[in-house]
């Protein structure tokens, strides 16, 4: 910059950032021009005076907390309104493989008969097979919507109690042999639960924790059905409650917890 600094511009130029090319050019010119040097020095002094102004007081923490809380309250209210107004997602059987959970239940039942030594009357096998079929159906229904999943979970728990009652004799109170019965239910729930979790993630969380709870419970029922032909303590009330029905309930709880976690990831 070879021209003298315009008096009206000097203050503005001095207020620009240190790296601004216009400011640097003005500074360079002022350092070499006696006529402009003093004007530049005044502008610099004004900049220093402005930089020296006191900072405003800090905001009141209580006031800031109130402001933050009011927006959060609105966010929560909007979220609740949105959830209430949105129809529960219904997923047609053709648009998503809801039968995957049911197929997993049948597969678990079949594997159970292959892997666990069993014996019994034809009626017992028939009841076991029918229970696996119903559980598979409930597993498939649970994949349709969260409302259906809730119903399927309740029906699965009822089915478990019904299966447990098949062999009860006069409410015998012995605990009997655990023989891995409880574990069998949990292990049997894994494959249908995995199928339900896969469905949930692939549908980006269109169903919820009841879907996975129902799937796990139905898997556990397949295990319970197999045990109908394999467990030596099926006649004991306490054994049935603590190792069979409780196994199905625990599987449902495991499914609900896994579903909740998967839902967070999916959504």
């Amino acid at each position: 910059m070879s021209e003298h600094l315009a008096r009206d511009d000097v203050a503005g130029l001095a207020m620009l950032d240190a790296g601004d090319p216009d400011r640097r050019a003005a500074e360079d010119h002022a350092s070499a021009c006696a006529a402009c040097r003093s004007e530049w020095a005044r502008a610099e002094r004004m900049r220093a005076l402005m930089d020296g102004l006191a900072s405003p007081p800090e905001p009141s923490p209580a006031a800031m907390q109130r402001a933050r809380a009011r927006v959060h309250a609105q966010l929560e209210s909007e979220s609740a309104t949105k959830a209430a107004s949105e129809p529960e997602p219904e997923i047609s059987a053709s648009s998503a493989p809801g039968w995957a959970t049911g197929a997993a239940v049948v597969l678990v039942g079949a594997l159970g008969f292959v892997l666990i030594p069993h014996q019994g009357s034809a009626l017992r096998y028939f009841v076991a097979a029918a229970a696996i079929g119903v559980a598979a159906m409930l597993g498939a229904i649970a994949a349709r919507s969260e409302r259906d999943a809730r119903l399927a979970t309740v029906l699965a728990l009822g089915l478990s109690v019904g299966l447990g009652a098949v062999d009860l004799r006069a409410f015998a109170m012995e605990m009997g042999h655990a023989e891995g019965c409880f574990t069998t239910h949990i292990v049997a729930s894994v494959l249908p639960l995995a199928a339900a979790l896969w469905l949930m993630v692939s549908r980006r969380g269109a169903t919820g924790p009841f879907h996975t709870a129902a799937a796990a419970a139905c898997g556990a029922i397949a295990g319970q059905a197999v045990l109908l032909t394999a467990c030596a303590s099926e006649e004991s009330f306490l054994h049935v409650v603590f190792f069979h029905v409780a196994g199905v309930v625990a599987a449902a709880a495991l499914g609900a917890g896994s579903g909740r976690l998967a839902l967070r990831l999916a959504r």
């Binding site: 405003p56 007081p57 905001p59 009141s60 006031a63 009011r70």
Partner: peptide, 13 residues
């Protein structure tokens, strides 16, 4: 400061 507190709340809303 107190006017500023109120205006910050108004602004965020």
């Amino acid at each position: 400061g107190s006017v500023a507190n109120d205006l910050v709340q108004t602004t965020f809303l």
